[in-house]
Design a protein around this nucleic acid. Sequence first.
DNA 1: GATGAATGAGCTTTCATTCAT
DNA 2: AATGAATGAAAGCTCATTCAT
Lengths: 218, 218, 218, 218
Amino acid sequence: MSDEAREVEVDGRTRRAQEAREVRRAAILQVALHVFAERGYHATTITDLVEAAGVARGTFYLYFDSKDAVFHVLLDDLLAALRAGVVGVDTRPEAPPVRDQLHRTLALLFAAVDGNRAFVRILLREAVGLDAAVEQKLRAFYDRLHAWVEVSLRRGQEMGVVRPLDTEVAAACVVGTVKQVLERWLVDRDDPVDVARLAAAVLDVTLGGVAVAGDYGP
Amino acid sequence: MSDEAREVEVDGRTRRAQEAREVRRAAILQVALHVFAERGYHATTITDLVEAAGVARGTFYLYFDSKDAVFHVLLDDLLAALRAGVVGVDTRPEAPPVRDQLHRTLALLFAAVDGNRAFVRILLREAVGLDAAVEQKLRAFYDRLHAWVEVSLRRGQEMGVVRPLDTEVAAACVVGTVKQVLERWLVDRDDPVDVARLAAAVLDVTLGGVAVAGDYGP
Amino acid sequence: MSDEAREVEVDGRTRRAQEAREVRRAAILQVALHVFAERGYHATTITDLVEAAGVARGTFYLYFDSKDAVFHVLLDDLLAALRAGVVGVDTRPEAPPVRDQLHRTLALLFAAVDGNRAFVRILLREAVGLDAAVEQKLRAFYDRLHAWVEVSLRRGQEMGVVRPLDTEVAAACVVGTVKQVLERWLVDRDDPVDVARLAAAVLDVTLGGVAVAGDYGP
Amino acid sequence: MSDEAREVEVDGRTRRAQEAREVRRAAILQVALHVFAERGYHATTITDLVEAAGVARGTFYLYFDSKDAVFHVLLDDLLAALRAGVVGVDTRPEAPPVRDQLHRTLALLFAAVDGNRAFVRILLREAVGLDAAVEQKLRAFYDRLHAWVEVSLRRGQEMGVVRPLDTEVAAACVVGTVKQVLERWLVDRDDPVDVARLAAAVLDVTLGGVAVAGDYGP
DNA sequence: GATGAATGAGCTTTCATTCAT
DNA sequence: AATGAATGAAAGCTCATTCAT
């Protein structure tokens, strides 16, 4: 075997080993997600995890530093997926109608959660005050979402399409609305959901309020 | 001493003992609330509880079955307080305006949470998925609130003061709005809050929506 | 039962409980000493300790913070016992001869070690660099012993009973001599030893050297 | 290529491979010595060793059976080095003076330790009771040293240059003296040391004792 | 021969709960 | 009724060693 061939083979080995590592890591993550979802984060032990993954205790620590570390990886992945769909409204003349853009954003968010139901379930049920780092990440995520909504509302006011109202309260209302709908339709239930329809209904209520026009008081 | 007198005295003793029991039980509860608030539910150990209460470990178990049991008592008390203010809208002619009634309900709810910030904080931060029973209680509370809102919305539609909209989605929006506002103004922060003003702002957004009338799309 | 009687009884209970605690603590210490001596410090696990003591794992931690803590208690006891016999030479005219005083000091030291063979064995065999605190304690002990010997030698030189020599080296020789004799006769063997005779022999060699008088030098 | 030539080439290969093995083995030993010295024996993990040596975990086990095995090799090397300088006194008429021979032996021993401070440090601080085999080796070394000293003292008595005294005790005193001086000047400190001067001082104290001649009592 | 991912027995420590006094 | 010493199951994590590639 020539030196060159050897080199290629070594590279091949290294690459295959690397790929095997990635695969195993992903497998442990996947299993952890399901075990967390089934037993709850706190109730899940390392033993549960390694038994479900079919690896030895030590192997787990080869891929993750701790139970918390696994959780943080899952959390970061989810938050990234959620953030991906939340983009600013395009106000150029040739852009689609604002309402359609908002609908698309909502639908994307709902779809992202729909694709991660198990983990979002853990997140909303148990991880709220899990540890300082998790809390900080969640809070940062919600704060960012809130800020984004509030800024959007202010812009809307400047454009004359949003009523004069307390934008901070209104932003909290929007965020809370989204959270609750997510929780009710995607977390508490296992049924498939038409995210487009749901997004449309939420948009309708949020934009127009519940009262008939002109009749919601002084 | 006659038998009767003895009986009376025994009754007196029994009664006094009973009262002492109640006092001690209440004291442990009160202390538990504060310790939970200070250290967090999970971080609080039985040792923390009994030391703060100034009783022996065994004594604690004379009054409560477990750490969880204390939590459930505190939880039941809170939920009862929250439910107290949520009453149906009075539709009789001589009743106050509907909007005022809704404002009063919201303000009462906010005030109840305001008076129990410490515990609500633990509830939302740590105890969301504490155990099946807690989860079920919370869910029942929210479901009941949701149902109440949905029924109210339907009645409003019949009365012609609520727009035609998906009442289930709208109810979820209302509940989510309330939860988020509570979390943002009463749980995440320590500042005193003008609950009446906050309730008014929430009502404004919820009833009228964020879009200017007639401009929120097809 | 009168209040006074009750008080007495409560005191009695408390006292008895306190005594029981002391007894148990001492029992664990005693057992630990033997287990350490038998299996070696490093090889001894908490499991070994509690099984030998016949208590539950948790009970152990009720009396000691850790395996190290037990060791430190034993160490402190030993060092105190060793230090007890090392006192300065009485140079008043009416005092016993210096040689007798030195003999007494040596014999006391040897006897103290003789009474703690098991632990001294651990100390010399394993605990030398156990942890920073142990090392510091041992070093402090030896340094103090060395300093005491060196000062004594200087005084002897002033009094004209000690030869002119490097007192630091000589002190190290004395300390090393004592350590080695202890190790050879009391640690490595289990035979009973005549400490007075041993002390006399050590004194003879140390004071007079091994060479015949006048024949040891250049 | 003829068969003979091939054979030669194979031999060459084998020899070169053998040499490469030796080199690698020595490299691991050298690295282990430094890592042990830096982190301490117990705190050093196989991971530390293989990372410092730049070889894979499995490779380590190709050269040594275990962590302990490496230690034993280092220990054997050290003891061999120490033993090298300890030779009997030459009593032929034309030999150098006895005192000079003793001085040379001491100085050689001190120098050997001086050249291996790091490992001696580990040996005395952590590995005293590492395992039965280490203990046995150390004990054998000291016993041999003791026996050698005792025999020398007896010969000295026969030659009339050593006082009548308990040679076993005296031998222990000499061994202890040497150990303590080594520990104090070469193990506990990092300063460079004049081994010749130190050896001379030790010899002076050991041969002549601390008391002025004729004044050390009956 | 070299590799390094995988192993799993074993460690120390915690803490909700029990029960003899 | 009150006490608090005792319990022991169970947790998270480490690391010397093995073995398929």
